[in-house]
């Protein structure tokens, strides 16, 4: 396994939903080389500066988010069952009926009445967690409270799995892949000074990116992300959005950002020059830290480079490893080009 995937594996195993990224932060800090200056800001963003051989013409910032989607305990019933709310946008169907765990190791399942007891109408509707509870095996509120407190967060089970022909499945690939690309880059000698930010609270409204961008105030930003791919059977044409194996995704527009046209084109030019597979999205959907960054401190020219990912925000995020490698390569080329850009 190359270093990039070792880093991804270790990062994904850590649990850190929006607002409680501390376990992830600790691992990221431990992976940074000694020649970096790292600070953690008030929200929890890690801001890392690394001196390069030369001072660049432009200050370039790379960004990826630390947080993952999860669940938060809002209430414990007298019977010892837990009510939860989603942290970030989760299709509830991907969480109900399977094990979730808390940071302390307590395991539980969100569920409801058996399929045999559901009405025809109930069976035909998607399940929602609002009407259901999580069972951790506690038989009373007092017993549950020995293991779980209000505000504790529950996570998908981590299970790093190599699938099929070069695919990788794991929780939290969104966006530990982006974090891993930056960590891998920071561990190598760099030609130009660079700032990398590992943002928090992306999943609940790109909140960490707001303060990180303000603090760093770069000339250019490169956002490293994962993005929804629906390239499986049942979807045709533009509904596939982007393709696993198609290379790095360079975005022109999503729900948060209309991307800088010059940088968008630069991405394709650089990819073409260095023979890096790349593509764009065929659906205007989703959003990422670019939305917060590009409108910060009077405007920051921003480009988003993403790894296409199936089943985003589920325990089974799936990427093709070659796409992560393409995105890492293109991120590096983009950093060089923006440092030198006149």
């Amino acid at each position: 396994m190359s270093e990039l995937f070792n880093i991804i594996k270790e990062l994904c195993a850590a649990d850190g939903t929006s607002g409680d990224e501390r376990a992830v932060t600790k691992i990221i800090l431990s992976m940074l080389p000694d020649d970096c200056e790292a600070t953690v800001d008030a929200l929890g963003n890690i801001i890392v500066f690394k001196k390069g051989i030369k001072t660049p013409k432009n200050k370039v910032m790379l960004a990826a988010h630390q947080d993952e989607v999860g669940f938060i305990v809002t209430y414990i019933t007298d019977d010892g069952l837990l009510k939860l709310s989603a942290v970030g946008g989760i299709n509830h169907e991907v969480a109900i009926g399977r094990q979730l765990h808390f940071a302390g190791g307590t395991v539980g399942v969100i569920g409801g009445k058996a399929v045999h007891q559901q009405s025809e109408e109930e069976r035909s509707k998607p399940v929602k967690i609002d009407s259901l509870t999580m069972d951790i095996g506690a038989l009373s509120k007092a017993e549950a409270e020995k293991y779980v407190s209000l505000g504790d967060c529950a996570y998908f089970e981590s299970n790093y799995t190599e699938l099929g022909d070069g695919y990788l499945r794991e929780k939290a690939l969104d966006d530990r892949v982006g974090c891993a690309i930056m960590i891998d880059m920071l561990n190598k000698p760099l030609p130009y000074d660079v700032t990398c930010v590992f943002t928090v609270q992306e999943e609940i409204g790109t909140r960490g990116a707001k303060t990180a961008a303000y603090t760093v105030h770069p000339d250019y930003a490169i956002v490293l992300e994962t993005t929804t791919a629906c390239d499986f059977s049942g979807n045709d044409g533009e509904k596939k959005v982007c393709l696993l194996g198609g290379g790095c995704v360079i975005s022109y527009m999503d729900r948060g950002t209309i991307y800088d046209r010059e940088l968008y084109r630069l991405g394709f030019d650089l990819a073409s020059k260095s023979d890096i597979p790349c593509q764009t999205k065929t659906l205007v959907a989703g959003g990422n830290d670019s939305g917060a960054i590009h409108t910060s401190v009077g405007g920051i020219r921003t480009v988003a480079l993403s790894v296409p990912c199936r089943y985003l925000h589920s325990p089974s995020c799936t990427i093709k490893k070659s796409d992560a490698e393409s995105t890492a390569k293109l991120a590096y080329e983009m950093y060089l080009a923006l440092c030198e850009k006149s």
Binding site: V115, T161, R169, C230, S314
Partner: peptide, 30 residues
């Protein structure tokens, strides 16, 4: 099986060898 909870579920296919798979699911916005 309760089909409503199978989205993005990890499965094992018991073929000539055991292989892992995932039940495909569309994101809500698609």
């Amino acid at each position: 099986p309760d089909k409503r909870v199978l989205a993005a579920q990890s499965v094992t296919i018991h073929g000539k060898e055991k292989i892992k798979g995932t039940v495909s699911v569309l994101p809500p916005h698609v």
